[in-house]
Each structure stands twice: as structure tokens, then as C-alpha cells.
């Protein structure tokens, strides 16, 4: 299954009449760091919500020959599709090890759940090294720094052995060094997996993206390599060129959404 791609076709999400995602298609393959960008409110998070079963959607999202839409959340996860959240959500009261151990649990038999943990799984140790959290094994996740929480979430996906990683704004709020570390981490793990990153940090995108899809108001505006997308006049118009206006408009949308 390592070669399987994620193919999203004509994805469509409506919230009581409001079309948040209106027929979006894109694909992502193992080996690339795929970016989904767009101003706030463009529908990026909603796309991920739809693929992971959190939000009802029409169209199709296939991983290999498996259709993902229409399945409950936990079944989609068991098909190897994992995600992180815009606001880091780890189990604050549990330690880093316990968080990872729970994430690793879906491969265990129900019976072994009833036993206490002995030692640290090799897969967990590997994920800790990969994300640089080895020193934090026994730290309660709640007191990790913001960046560390994001890494913990990625580590949880690694021990989960997710084949598809959907990361929602993984570097938001990170320092420059942390961003670089995260980007390199993504490049490493993308070698054998599908990595789809939602971001609006253009600089981060430029440095690490292999291919980019630009969303705008629930539609695909442009698609291609970083250079192609940046050269696209449509993108420059609605997103890059008039970044200031777009951001203000997007802020209004967000305020309204949260209001």
C-alpha cells in the first residue's frame, strides 16, 4: 500500500446552504510534501474535516482503492489516514509516553489493552527521535511548549503508522528555527508517506513544498509547483498580490465564524 495515492475528486461541503468547499479536486502522492494554501476561510480545514469524516461531504476521497467518505471517523483512521488539528490537541493530563502509547494502540489486540505498559515500544522510540521529543518522555503533555505539542501530534501519527498525514497549520506560532526543524521533519517522513500540509505561511511553503494547491472561497484557484503557482496571475490577484486586503477580509470571516 506504500505506493497508494490520495485522490480527492469534486469534494463538496455545505453548511446549511453555505458552500464552504465547492467541488475541490487534488491528489497527493507518497514522496512529496503537498501543500494546501489559501486565505483564512478558504475551506482548507473543512477539506481535511471532510476527508477524515468529521464533516459530511459529497464527492470522493480515495486512498488507493479505499473510498474514505461516508465512513465514521475511527474507521477512516484505521485505514491509515491521520490528521493533526489547528489548535494542538493532545491529552494534557497524560505524559508524552502515554499519549504516544495510546496512539500506538490501534494495532494492539483488545486483550493486550488490559495489561500495563512495559517499557517503550520501538515504534514510539523511533517517533520520539524523529520529532526530537526523546527528552520529554515523562513530561505531561499539557506543559509542553506549543511547538512541542505540534511535534507530539506528528509523533502520534507516526506511531499510529498513518499512511496519509493531514497536517492543519503545523507551524503556526512556531519560531523560525522550529519551523525549519518541522519542515525538515516533514520532508523526512514524506519519503514513505503522503503528507498534506495546510498552511498560510508563504515562506514556509516556498521552502518545503513540492506541489501546491491554492484554495479560494471553496474552489481550487491554482495548482502546480511553487514556481507555477506563484507565477499564476489569479493567485497573485486574490491571494499574494492583494495579501493585505485578503487578510482583512479573512479576519472578518473568522470573527464572524467564531462569533
Amino acid at each position: 500500500m506504500t505506493g497508494a495515492s490520495l485522490v480527492v475528486t469534486d469534494l463538496r461541503v455545505e453548511f446549511s446552504g453555505f458552500v464552504a468547499v465547492g467541488g475541490v479536486s487534488f491528489d497527493a502522492h507518497p514522496g512529496e510534501v503537498r501543500f494546501l494554501i489559501g486565505p483564512n476561510g478558504a475551506g482548507k480545514t473543512t477539506c481535511i474535516d471532510a476527508i477524515t469524516g468529521l464533516t459530511k461531504a459529497t464527492g470522493s476521497a480515495r486512498h488507493g482503492d479505499q473510498e474514505l467518505l461516508g465512513r465514521p471517523v475511527h474507521k477512516i483512521v484505521r485505514l491509515g489516514v491521520g490528521r493533526t488539528f489547528q489548535t494542538a490537541s493532545v491529552f494534557d493530563e497524560l505524559t508524552v509516553l502515554q499519549n504516544l502509547d495510546i496512539a500506538a494502540g490501534r494495532h494492539r489486540s483488545s486483550f493486550s489493552l488490559l495489561r500495563a505498559r512495559r517499557g517503550v515500544d520501538p515504534s514510539i522510540e523511533h517517533a520520539l527521535e524523529e520529532t526530537g521529543l526523546t527528552g520529554e518522555l515523562t513530561t505531561p503533555a499539557g506543559i509542553l511548549s506549543h511547538g512541542q505539542k505540534q511535534w507530539l501530534e506528528i509523533a502520534m501519527l507516526l506511531v499510529q503508522d498513518a499512511k496519509v498525514l493531514l497536517l492543519d497549520e503545523p507551524v503556526a506560532g512556531m519560531s523560525q528555527d522550529e519551523r525549519t526543524a518541522t519542515g525538515e521533519l516533514l520532508q523526512r517522513i514524506a519519503a514513505k508517506r503522503i503528507v498534506l500540509v495546510v498552511e498560510h505561511d508563504m515562506d514556509f511553503m516556498r521552502r518545503f513544498a513540492t506541489r501546491v494547491t491554492v484554495l479560494h472561497q471553496g474552489q481550487v484557484l491554482s495548482q502546480g509547483t511553487v514556481a507555477e503557482v506563484q507565477a499564476d496571475p489569479k493567485v497573485q490577484e486574490v491571494y499574494l498580490g492583494t495579501a493585505g486586503a485578503a487578510t482583512t477580509a479573512a479576519m472578518a470571516v473568522v470573527l464572524e465564524k467564531e462569533g
Binding site: H74, V77, G82, R83, V90, F91, R106
Partner: peptide
Amino acid sequence: ERVRFLGYD
């Protein structure tokens, strides 16, 4: 809800 995303029901 978070637990769901780790593959548990």
C-alpha cells in the same frame, strides 16, 4: 472526540 482520531471508537 480526539480519541476517535486515534482509531478508537
